[in-house]
Amino acid sequence: MNILLIDSQRINYVNSGEYSAGAAYDGHTLEVTTNPSDEQLARADGIIAFHAVPIDAPLVARMHRCRALVKATIGLDDVDIEALSAKGILCSNIGSVGAQEVAEHALALILMAQRKLSDFARHTREGGWSWRHHHGTVKSCSDTVLGLVGYGEIGQALAYRASALGYRLCFYDPRIERCPLGLAQRMTLDTLLGQADVISLHLPLTGHSRHLLNDTRFAQVKRGATLINTARGAIVDSEALLRALQSGAISMALLDVVQEEPFVPEALLEHERVLMTPHAAFYSERSLADLKRNALQTMIALLRGDRVKTLVNPDCIAQEANTHV
């Protein structure tokens, strides 16, 4: 069977020469492209799509023998699952690959903001030498309330690490009734926003979470709070965030993601109290290798008809079986 890997045009996840032309994996032929032709899409039995490769209805219409599509990400916000299901194409993500790295990246951003490292670095680079030269208040970890919006694997991994530093932890997640680790207090979103010194986002992008943090929500935050976003950019309304920074409702924003990557609003990019990283939170040498291996193993399992926990459209299994007899 033929497996087509569609890599990101913006930044390659597959290294040059990693899969040579006609390479095989577990008996399946692999082909890599960043711009799939009609012929490539038509002959693919399975398709793996990396981050920043949208799977929309016109692209799905060109998949004539495809049985399964694996998105080599956690989020599926740029995948038309209905279009895939309508053609009997199984769809899966790769679960929580890179969850520990995202938690560590978020914690690094939290500590950077809390310890005012960017302020101090800028001050000393300009010739200064005063620990008083910073914006906002410097608190110890034990005096800081860290609010986690979303408490899945990444949120819990961050809580585990932050608890060792003494943070006072709370979380909001409508899917979770009790804190699995006993480390954080469950709150409503309104209560969390009003109490947290640091707000860290760890939830998927859905119709409900899009622009979850907007003008109304920013008006509820504890004045001077810090915002961390290593989840999805569109969870935060960028224009509302700029207004919150201007008013002082948010003292600092540290963002690994933005709404329309890689096009960062100039006002955010140049803001002295905004620090940005390039959607790098998931990354380590190990997590990148795990991501590709997991995507391939998930694809092989789907093509074999094995049970896959990350399958998101199980209702089309019967249709898929009838279509590809």
Rank of each mutant, 00 (worst) to 15 (best):
A21L: 15
N322G: 10
H135E: 07
A219M: 09
R175H: 10
L242Y: 06
D26G: 03
T206S: 15
S16T: 15
I55K: 02
H211F: 12
F218M: 06
L69D: 01
A164M: 10
F50K: 06
T29W: 07
A295H: 04
P278Y: 00
A184H: 06
R223A: 14
Q259C: 14
W129P: 03
M276K: 00
C316L: 05
T226E: 08
T191Q: 14
N313Y: 04
A57I: 15
A289P: 00
L181V: 01
F120N: 02
S142C: 11
A280W: 02
R186E: 07
H105L: 11
R232H: 02
A234H: 03
Q40N: 03
Y172W: 10
P180F: 12
M1D: 08
Q297H: 07
G98C: 06
D256R: 10
Y172T: 04
A159I: 13
S200L: 14
H105A: 14
E31S: 11
D315I: 03
S92G: 04
D45W: 08
Q259A: 10
G207R: 15
V149R: 06
D237I: 08
L269E: 09
D190N: 14
N12P: 14
Q9R: 15
A52K: 10
S85T: 15
F171I: 02
A99C: 06
R217H: 11
A108N: 08
R304F: 01
L213C: 05
L189H: 04
A61L: 13
G207D: 15
D26E: 12
L268D: 07
L189E: 07
R65W: 03
R186S: 14
E272Q: 13
G127S: 13
H51S: 15
W131Q: 12
N15F: 06
P265L: 12
S16M: 13
G95E: 00
I228F: 06
N2R: 10
G17H: 11
R273F: 10
T73E: 05
S96P: 02
L30K: 10
L269G: 08
M112E: 15
D119C: 12
V198L: 10
E272L: 05
A267F: 00
L165V: 11
L109A: 12
L4I: 03
D237L: 08
T144L: 01
M276L: 09
E31K: 12
V308R: 03
I250C: 11
Q259G: 00
V97R: 00
L69R: 00
Q220Y: 01
S16W: 06
V70T: 03
S96I: 04
F171P: 09
F50L: 12
I81N: 08
H133M: 09
Q297G: 04
S96D: 13
Y167N: 03
I154E: 09
A234P: 01
L242R: 12
A42M: 02
L165Y: 10
D256G: 14
T124G: 05
L148G: 07
L291N: 05
V32A: 07
G136T: 06
K87M: 05
R168C: 09
R132G: 12
S284M: 06
R178N: 09
M1Y: 04
Q220E: 02
G95D: 05
R65M: 01
R210K: 14
R132M: 08
E260M: 04
G127I: 05
F282M: 01
L242G: 05
N12I: 05
D7M: 12
K87I: 02
R115D: 13
T191W: 02
A267P: 05
D290Y: 00
S118T: 15
